[in-house]
């Protein structure tokens, strides 16, 4: 619809805030061609009703390297946030606020207050409750990353469901949704691993400096186990977190989904937890592993 008008409403306050910007910067920021940017600025230049005592905007762009706005009497501020925009921004800030190990939460908290003071109706419809991380673990890991020392961790594994003790060289902490992960070189398995911080039961600082083989690039764990399962279409949404390769629809709402997961063990757990809603189709070793585990129940 009113595309150019919407752009112009955003463009003028941006030019005011970034006085002296070049045409290519304008094009880049608004994701338009330089030609289109030039047309828009041209429209701003000719705008300004004669009856209102001269132009309402005074733009000077002798060359396209610097555009100066010396007078924008009315539209010198950006438009207020829509509720959706406020929700997205404040939601993102509330999210950051949950991670004292990643950001300075006092600054983030102050920023949220500042925005809400200026816009009393702005609210975020998003709440985040993160998994609890032991303070000891947190401080040991942070110290180890800063001083580049190895740590010994007792870890409650997610895919294999086992508790193991490992020596790891910690590198960085990051978040994915409400979990915080530690990226580290695992000396026991001689590979890069991500550990969920809330599942590190204990962490001990060692006196050894980290020693990561130089030719080992940090790589993401791969979803290498290819399998097929059958389930009612109603439960399809529960496959949010797997890589879906393909799916076929059958009669009576059944679908066969071919997927890739990190490990067979994890998939067996998922199928067992579904309580019969999900059926393993192939490969045969998936069904064998599933039946073996289920038969061991007493």
């Amino acid at each position: 619809m009113a595309n150019d008008l919407e752009l112009l409403i955003k463009l003028l306050p941006w030019l005011v805030a970034n006085n002296g910007a070049s045409l290519s910067e304008v094009a880049k920021h608004f994701d338009i061609s330089e030609k289109h940017a030039l047309e828009l600025i041209g429209q701003l230049v000719v705008t300004g009703p004669s009856q209102a005592g001269g132009g309402l905007v005074d733009i000077d762009f002798e060359d396209s390297d610097s555009i100066f706005v010396s007078d924008a009497k009315a539209l010198d501020r950006p438009v207020k946030l829509s509720e959706f925009e406020a929700s997205a921004l404040l939601g993102g800030l509330h999210y950051l606020e949950q991670f004292p190990n990643l950001v300075d939460t006092e600054i983030v908290g102050g920023l949220i207050q500042k925005i809400q003071q200026a816009l009393p109706n702005a609210d975020s419809a998003i709440n985040v409750v993160t998994a609890r991380i032991s303070e000891d673990v947190n401080s040991v890991v942070s110290k180890a990353i800063a001083s580049k020392h190895a740590i010994e961790i007792k870890y409650a594994g997610v895919t294999k469901e086992d508790v193991s003790v490992r020596m790891v060289d910690p590198v960085k902490i990051y978040s994915q949704d409400d979990f915080v992960y530690l990226k580290a070189w695992c000396q026991n398995s001689q590979a890069w691993r991500s550990f969920r911080m809330d599942r590190i039961l204990e962490a001990k600082l060692s006196d050894k400096a980290i020693a990561i083989p130089a030719d080992e690039e940090p790589s993401e764990a791969k979803r290498e186990y290819l399998a097929a399962i059958e389930l009612d279409k109603a439960y399809y949404g529960q496959l949010d977190q797997v890589d879906i390769v393909s799916f076929k629809e059958y009669m009576w709402h059944a679908v066969e989904v071919e997927l890739r997961v990190y490990s067979r063990d994890w998939l067996v757990s998922m199928i067992l937890a579904s309580g019969g809603r999900v059926k393993a189709v192939r490969p045969p070793d998936l069904i064998e592993a599933l039946v073996a585990r289920a038969s061991a129940w007493e």
Binding site: A17, A88, L89, G92, L96, V103, I107
Partner: peptide, 29 residues
Amino acid sequence: YLALAASAWQNAQLSTAARQAVSSVDARE
């Protein structure tokens, strides 16, 4: 942190909305 809050969203519509919000709160590049 404004930029970080916007870039956290791994969802096209939400990240666009958050980025637009950031440039309204703080129009400076």
